Amino acid sequence: MSDHPSTFDATPVNSDEDAWDDAAALHEADDGQGVLDSAKALRRGSFADMIRYLTRLPEEEREKYVIQKAGDRQYTADEAEGLAARPDFPKS
């Protein structure tokens, strides 16, 4: 899941390790991104923490948000739910 470039040749890291501790932020799904995108984060923490937070929201609220992980990859609520259900997802 580690999808940020390495420092060698700027190629994606392919270590098969899960990056649950990568930096991540919760954003409104339609916040427009742009130059000030990082300032629009509603909450910050590890990738696992943001997944936990998003999946604990009421179901009707979840679709309003996305998780932006290091490397600018965005995860929808559906993707976060799938990740939270994995057997290797950190419990806390």
Rank of each mutant, 00 (worst) to 15 (best):
D16N: 15
E17A: 13
D18A: 06
A19H: 11
A19R: 08
W20L: 03
W20P: 06
W20N: 05
W20Y: 03
D21P: 01
D22V: 03
A23T: 03
A24S: 05
A25M: 11
A25C: 12
A25D: 11
L26A: 08
L26T: 04
L26Q: 05
L26W: 06
H27D: 06
H27N: 02
E28W: 14
E28N: 10
E28T: 11
A29W: 11
D30K: 10
D30R: 11
G32Q: 07
G32T: 07
G32W: 08
G32D: 01
Q33A: 14
Q33N: 14
G34K: 12
G34T: 06
V35K: 14
V35D: 12
S38Y: 03
K40Q: 09
K40E: 00
A41D: 07
A41W: 03
L42Q: 05
R43Y: 12
R44F: 09
R44M: 12
R44H: 13
G45I: 09
F47I: 06
F47Y: 04
F47C: 06
A48N: 06
A48R: 08
A48I: 08
A48H: 05
D49E: 14
D49N: 12
I51N: 12
I51L: 11
I51T: 07
Y53K: 11
L54K: 12
T55V: 15
R56G: 02
R56N: 15
R56A: 13
L57D: 04
L57C: 10
L57M: 13
P58K: 07
P58Q: 09
P58I: 02
E60V: 05
E60Y: 15
E60K: 12
E61L: 02
E61P: 00
E61S: 11
E61G: 00
R62S: 03
R62D: 07
R62E: 03
E63N: 08
K64E: 01
K64L: 12
K64H: 02
K64N: 15
K64P: 03
Y65S: 07
Y65V: 02
Y65F: 12
I67V: 02
Q68G: 05
Q68T: 04
Q68Y: 05
K69A: 07
A70D: 00
G71R: 09
D72W: 02
R73H: 09
Q74F: 06
Q74R: 14
Y75K: 00
T76V: 02
A77L: 10
A77K: 01
A77V: 00
A77F: 05
D78A: 15
E79Y: 10
E79D: 14
E79S: 12
E79R: 13
E79G: 09
A80Y: 09
A80D: 02
E81L: 14
E81W: 07
E81Q: 15
E81R: 10
G82E: 05
A84L: 00
